[in-house]
Write a protein that binds this DNA or RNA. Structure first.
Length: 816
DNA sequence: AGCACGCCGACT
DNA sequence: GTCGGCGTGCTC
């Protein structure tokens, strides 16, 4: 058999559902899987990712690869099946999957660069200066400044293209094809290390005063963490240090090296956590099951159910040690916001240089550096937020997902993946042990643990047997007010806030409400009006005067009766953290109040700034959404108030009960970790609701039983699978028509009998950023069928042209 | 996505 | 009669 020249299977960074085949570049070089290449596609050049080298020749004429972009792969070949799986399962173009997985700034595409010729300069500046006025971009060109690639693209796509081409032909400007977009720089910091050898006495005796001072300072600063210290820390403390450090390095007293530096969010040197010599019996027991699984190098999923403060971290660390000892690598996923917690410091303390960090707070260059360290094998432990599931580790033998129940693992735009679910997929592909950890496991994970699909490990007690905090429930229905409507703050909570302020301690005030959707709340039983078919809270559409189900489209007049107790005393309700902040400011004019939610924290910096203010006791009362439950423990917070614990139960979401339980359990678990036990006051309209009562009693099994029963009865996950199809566009009618057309098409396809089509219905945020949104929910137990139906509807959508956009959300968690 | 091709109204 | 608008379809 003669060897034909190989062909390359390439995923192109464009929204194509399939991969494309290219011939070898003219150089004859054969790029390896994982390398980036520049490929021609429909008259332009863009980045592609080589997935495979194949001998299979397709039936059509191939174009050759235009260029190689890398000397080495940017991801290991072993990740190719993973990318394929993700693209297929989440109905997302594979090239976009890979582009999104890689650190930013690695995507090249062809563009154009516009420059003025000598003749042009004269023409535009002297002969026809009004042209510069008419075409403002000419100002940059005549000033010999480069136009950005984005600017040129916009001009080229718009009305200016003709004139640009015309002037190009006249020789007034030059239009050159360039490759742009890939912009990556290295960023490191100079760090100081003490020499490992003890110093000779004569060296020490001959030091200059400034050198002695610097050395003393260094030793002092290194004391809490005997690792590296950034040079600028020293030069900040003592301006003579820069010079002294250089000469000390020359004398061999210390080393200066370029290193990435990891910083604590509060700007302190990371704490060093020593390896504890003793484990608890529960930790030992867990590791006795984990270690053999790790050693087998086969896929083995575990659920580590441990209450807050029970020592999950040490189990992670020991499992990581065992995995590294086998020569395999470790991937640790944490919720983005929790990256500021001690977990990262624990891993750094234990494993030092072999840890890489991947999170959204890194600058582009930093992110690229971390990526390089991983792909080159220098870093064998990766800690990161959900996107770190795409970290280019060659042979992950252990994948840890901390706080696995956390909603932050679900990406809610572009590629809508679930990081925790992908951890299991990647683990099963690479033969890894997957360790999911949580104090309040997701229903699905716990279900799998009980069914034996995962192995359940338990850490039922807190270290040192500290008690869980006492939780007081306040029934808002029972609070008497002049107006007869429940108040925002009960006398109990007001009183507690006042007392806490008087003691100069801090309070946290939660409102689990980031949604905007209003609902109708029954003033007698406290329950929100629900859909008779879906048991989902109906959303109030004020304009139409209707209550609408966002799952099935059911609508009823907003003047209705309570679905629970038939009462006619229904009141529209809807308020958020902003209102709470306002009320508090009115009640306590002298208190320093801060708010932490999506509106006040545009980015990680804002988040850390507010946390820091609380940490430094510059804030008396912190108001916020679930964001405050994560991350930090503040020792001076002695009161936690939950304004409206059942707020989440009013959301149009089948997971409302689960979310509510998790939130309350997380909050109450967090209080009382300091020396004082702390007080938790939970205000609610539904004190007997199972989610709220079980959270008060720290009773996960009770919650699980009840919630599982409800889900099963209604056929919601984990007893079925969902795919949400969201249509959006500028014209409401077009969107609604398309939604109806697709739903009708789906219902007409008789071969998908086992899959239900709910809707179409207006999306819970029916108008978002000026676009109208409708959705169709697919629900079924047959995964195969569900996905083929989805695929057919996508094809139907593509066939029907129009300015309506379709996005697919597989396993939706939050349909807002 | 973005570019080419193709089919209809208002200009020389 | 052409220019140039945008709607559809394909990209190895």
């Amino acid at each position: 058999m003669s060897a034909s020249p190989p062909y390359l299977e390439v995923a192109v960074a464009a929204p194509l559902p399939q991969t494309l085949t290219y011939a070898l570049p003219s150089s004859g070089e054969i790029p390896a899987p994982g390398q980036r290449v520049l490929v021609p596609l429909g008259g332009r050049l863009l980045t592609g990712y080589v997935l495979a080298v194949t001998q299979e020749k397709p039936a059509f004429r191939l174009k050759p690869i235009a260029d190689l972009l890398d000397d080495f792969p940017v991801f290991p070949e072993g990740m190719v099946p993973f990318f394929r799986w993700v693209a297929r399962y989440y109905h997302y173009p594979i090239g976009e999957v890979i582009r999104g997985a890689l650190p930013g700034g690695l995507t090249s595409q062809s563009g154009r660069q516009i420059m003025a010729t000598e003749a042009g300069l004269h023409y535009f500046l002297v002969e026809q200066p009004q042209l510069v006025h008419d075409h403002p971009w000419l100002a940059s060109v005549t000033a010999k400044k480069k136009l950005s690639a984005a600017t040129v693209r916009k001009l080229w796509r718009g009305k200016e293209r003709r004139i640009i081409e015309q002037w190009g032909e006249q020789g007034l400007i030059s239009v050159e094809q360039i490759i742009s977009g890939a912009t990556i720089g290295q960023k490191t910091e100079t760090c100081v290390f003490l020499a490992s050898e003890p110093l000779a006495p004569e060296t020490l005796a001959n030091l200059k005063p400034s050198e002695k001072k610097t050395l003393a300072l260094l030793e002092e600063m290194l004391l809490p963490a005997p690792q590296a210290l950034p040079r600028r820390e020293l030069t900040k403390a003592y301006s003579g240090a820069a010079k002294a450090l250089a000469s000390l390095a020359g004398k061999g007293v210390l080393r200066l090296e370029e290193r990435p530096v990891y910083r604590d969010p509060f700007g302190e040197t990371p704490l060093f956590y020593p390896r504890p010599p003793q484990l608890t019996a529960d930790q030992e027991n867990g590791l006795a099951q984990l270690n053999p699984a790790i050693a087998k190098k086969k896929y083995a999923p575990f659920l580590l159910h441990g209450v807050t403060g029970s020592g999950k971290t040490e189990v992670y660390l020991r499992a990581a040690e065992a995995t590294l000892a086998l020569g395999r690598s470790v991937l640790v996923l944490v919720p983005e916001i929790a990256l500021a917690t001690q977990l990262e410091a624990h891993f750094l303390s234990r494993f030092g240089e072999t840890v890489a960090l991947l999170h959204s707070g890194l600058a582009r260059g930093e992110r690229f550096d971390q990526w390089q360290r991983v792909v080159s094998g220098k870093a064998r432990i990766v800690i990161g937020a959900r996107s770190a599931i795409f970290a280019p580790l060659g042979d992950p033998g252990l994948i840890i997902v901390d706080e696995e129940h956390d909603g932050a693992y679900k990406q809610e735009d572009s590629l809508r993946y679930q990081g925790r679910d992908l951890a299991l997929v990647r683990g099963s592909q690479t033969g890894a042990t997957v360790l999911l950890g949580s104090a309040t496991p997701s229903l699905a994970s716990y279900q799998h643990a009980l069914s034996g699909k995962y192995t359940l490990l338990s850490l039922p007690t807190r270290i040192e047997n500290r008690p869980l905090p006492q939780v007081e429930l306040v029934d808002l229905q029972a609070v008497n007010t002049v107006s007869g409507r429940p108040p925002l703050f009960s006398p109990q909570l007001k009183q507690a806030l006042r007392a806490t302020l008087a003691r100069q301690e801090q309070s946290l005030v939660f409102l689990n409400r980031r949604g905007f959707a209003g609902c109708m709340l029954c003033s007698d039983c406290g329950q929100a009006v629900q859909c008779p078919h879906c048991r989902i809270t109906l959303t109030l559409h004020k304009g139409r005067g209707e209550l609408v189900c966002h799952y099935c489209g059911y609508a009823t007049n907003s003047r209705t009766v309570c679905t629970n107790c038939r009462s006619i005393n229904l009141a529209p309700i809807g308020f958020g953290t902003e209102r709470i902040e306002e009320e508090l400011a009115g009640m306590f004019p002298k208190a320093r109040i801060a708010r932490l939610d999506h509106d006040t924290t545009r980015n990680r910096q804002d988040f850390l700034r507010i946390l820091r203010a609380v940490h430094d006791r510059e804030v008396d009362i912190l108001v916020g959404t679930q964001m405050i439950t994560k991350g930090h423990h503040f020792p001076h917070v002695t009161l936690v108030g939950i304004v409206w614990a059942d707020a989440g139960l009013g959301m149009p979401d089948y997971k409302a009960g689960e979310r509510t339980f998790q939130l309350l359990a997380q909050v109450t678990g967090r209080a009382g970790r300091g020396e004082q036990p702390g007080r938790v006051i939970v205000q609610t309209h539904q004190p007997t609701h199972y989610s709220i009562a079980a959270a008060r009693d720290h009773d996960y099994p009770r919650f699980f039983e009840k919630e599982t029963g409800l889900r099963k009865a209604l056929g919601y996950p984990p007893f079925s699978r969902l795919i949400n199809l969201v249509l959006d566009g500028e014209q409401e009618e077009a969107v609604q028509n398309r939604a109806e057309a697709l739903a009708a098409k789906g219902k007409a396809l008789r071969r998908y009998r086992k899959t239900g089509i709910l809707g179409p219905a207006p999306a819970p945020l029916a108008r978002l950023r000026g676009r109208f949104r409708w959705q169709i929910l697919l629900k079924g137990t047959d995964l195969e069928e569900l996905h083929s139906l989805c695929l057919e509807l996508e094809q139907e959508h593509a066939r029907l042209a129009g300015k309506v956009n379709l996005s697919v959300d597989v396993d939706p968690e939050n349909m807002l």
